[in-house]
Design a protein around this nucleic acid. Structure first.
Lengths: 113, 113
DNA sequence: ACATCTCATCGTATATCGACGATGAACGCT
DNA sequence: AGCGTTCATCGTCGATATACGATGAGATGT
């Protein structure tokens, strides 16, 4: 309902393509790493909210989740560390958006199971 | 190299279809649960080995992984708890095989991101 | 300068994970 | 019965995850 669909000037280049690992062991590690980032309902919800509002959304995420602000921030940190999202400072707020390449890589790795 | 492609009489019915959750919150929980099961390279490797040798393979997994037997057993337990694999006793050995429905559900949930 | 708003980080407490060795249970074989 | 093989479980250890409140950093607005 909220999430005012802010089209802020972020997520500009949008990382063209995901590198697909050739070594099976590397693929396993990559998949495990990305799966670990998705291994919590709150992070799945965050990613879903970010892909739905395709542009960028700000910290309104806290209002959508039944978690404290600091907890949401930690989940965002994990998603960012996994390369699945990007956060850019926009004045007093921070603009979060998905990294389409990383999500595509995740989908590809899972589909290849 | 090993893994003698044992075609044992297990994995008979092979669970016809995955139930796809309608509630978004339920879908998040399901995806998180399955992703958590895949959140470790060893478990990804195990699942991959099981799908490659489509029939069933037994504790030869221990030979393929750089882990102790008890550790592999614990990973198998987690995969089984997540519903991704099935284990049936076959004489002195235990026959593990994938649960295609659960894997398909996982793929569908990830693809729907 | 000051207050405010937004978000990250710190510190802490509890729970779970991941690994191993050791032990136990189930089964087949002689 | 007794033995060996196979796998699960137990107990333990250190590391990590999850949650929260409190505090800090940065920018905006008065």
């Amino acid at each position: 309902m909220s999430l005012p669909a802010t089209n802020l000037p972020c997520c500009p280049p949008a990382e063209p393509m995901p590198p697909v690992p050739a070594e099976p062991q590397e693929a396993n590690a990559q998949l495990a790493r990305l799966a670990k980032a998705m291994a919590h309902p709150a992070r799945v919800a965050i990613l879903r909210l970010l892909v739905q509002h395709e542009g960028c959304i700000v910290g309104a995420l806290v209002d959508e989740l039944p978690l404290a602000q600091s907890t949401v921030s930690q989940h965002l940190k994990q998603l960012k560390a996994a390369g699945l999202i990007r956060g850019e400072v926009d004045g007093p707020r921070v603009c979060y958006c998905v990294e389409p390449g990383a999500v595509a890589l995740f989908k590809a790795l899972v589909a290849a199971l």
